[in-house]
Computed example of a mutant assay.
Amino acid sequence: MIVDTHLHIVDQSALSYPWLAGAGALNRSFSYDDYAREARRLGITASMHMEVDVAAGDIEKETDYITGIAAREGSLIVGAIASCRPEDKGFAAYLESIRSRSIIKGLRRILHEMPDELSESPMFRENIRRLAGTGLTFDLVVLPRQLPKAIALIDLNPDVQFVLDHCGVPDIKGGGLEPWRSHMTEIAKRPNVVGKLSGIVAYTDLETWTLESIRPYAEHTISSFGFDRMIWGSDWPVCTRAGTLSTWVGATYALLEGCSKEEKAKLLSGNANKLWDLKVS
C-alpha cells in the first residue's frame, strides 16, 4: 500500500495558476482521472492533494475544488495541504475559517521561489506559531541555501509539526552535495520535522538521470530522519518531466531494496497515516 502525500491537480478551466506561464510542458491541465488511473495500477490507495500555488484569490476556491473530487465515490483523495499566506495580516482569520474543514490536514507557503527573508518577517513567524495545537502541519519547500532559515523557523516553533518537501530540494543536476548534506543532517535533529521522499527527479538532468544519480540524496535524507520520520510523495505531475508516475514509483522501490518490510511500510504509508490520522486501511 502507498499513501501519496504530494499530488497536484491542475485544472486551468477552474483555477488560475500565474506561475505556469513560465513552466514549459507543465503549462496545461492535469486531471485527477489521469492520475488515478495510473496510481491505482501502482498500488497507491490514498492521496493527499498538495496546493499548486494558485492565484491568491483562488486559495479557498482550490480547497472547494479538491473537496469536490474527494467527495466522489471511490476517490483516492483523503486530505489536502492548502495554500496560505503567513506573511499577511489576514492569516489568523483564514486559519480560523478553515479549521472546521476536515479535508485540510496542513498548510504550505511556497518559499523556494520567494525572497529568502520572507520566513524571517515577524508576521510570518507569528502566524506560523498559530498552528500549534491545531493539528495542522506546515510543509516547507526550500532551497539548500534556505535550509538554515527553515531551521530557525522550526526552532522558534517547537510545538508545530513541519514536513520537509522534496528531500530539501537538492541540486542533483549540479552535483550539489554540500552544503545540502550538512544542512539536512542538522534539520533532521529537530523531532518536530518529518522528511518527504518526493520530487527529487525534477532536480536532475531530466533526460539522463539514473537511479545512481539520485541515490545519494534519497539515502542521506532517509538516514538523517530515520524510517520513523519519513513519508513518500509522487509530486505528480511535476515528476512527469523526468519520466512518469510509474517511473518514480519504480525508482522508489529500487532505492528501498534491502530495507525491511516494516521500514518500507512506514515510509510508504504508515507514517502518513499516523501523522494525519488518515485511517486508511
Score class of each variant (00 low, 15 high):
A150L: 07
R125Y: 02
I110S: 09
E126L: 07
S121E: 13
I110Q: 11
I128T: 04
P144H: 11
P144K: 08
F124Q: 05
M114V: 09
L107V: 05
L118P: 00
P148R: 05
I128E: 03
V163Q: 00
S97F: 06
I128W: 00
L95A: 13
F124W: 15
V160E: 00
S97L: 12
I103G: 01
N157E: 07
S97M: 10
I151L: 13
Q161E: 13
E117Q: 11
L164C: 07
T137A: 15
E126Q: 14
A132P: 00
A132E: 13
F138P: 06
I104W: 02
R109L: 09
L140Y: 02
R99F: 01
A152L: 11
S97Y: 09
I154A: 10
H166I: 01
D171M: 09
R109G: 07
E96P: 00
A150C: 08
S97Q: 12
P148H: 03
Q161F: 08
A150G: 11
G135H: 11
K149W: 02
Y94N: 05
D159I: 07
I110R: 04
I128V: 14
L118K: 07
Y94Q: 08
P144A: 02
V169N: 13
L143C: 10
Q161C: 12
G106F: 07
S97W: 11
Y94W: 15
N157R: 06
L111E: 09
L111F: 03
E96W: 02
D165L: 08
N127A: 09
D139C: 05
P144Y: 11
R99W: 00
L156W: 03
L136H: 06
I110L: 15
Q146V: 06
D116A: 15
F91P: 02
I128H: 00
I154Q: 01
E126N: 13
I110P: 00
D171G: 07
F124A: 09
A152I: 04
E113R: 10
P122V: 03
L131R: 04
L131W: 11
D139Y: 01
P170G: 08
F124L: 09
I151K: 04
R101V: 13
I154V: 15
V169P: 02
A132I: 07
E96A: 14
L107Q: 09
D155A: 14
L140M: 05
L136D: 11
G133Q: 11
S100N: 14
V163P: 00
I98P: 03
F91L: 02
L131M: 06
P122T: 10
E126R: 14
G135R: 12
G135E: 12
V141F: 09
R145W: 13
I110D: 05
V142H: 00
R101K: 12
A93S: 14
S121V: 09
N157S: 14
A92K: 14
I103C: 01
P144F: 10
A92H: 11
E117A: 12
R129T: 13
D165M: 01
P122G: 08
T134A: 12
F162D: 00
A93D: 15
S102A: 15
I110F: 08
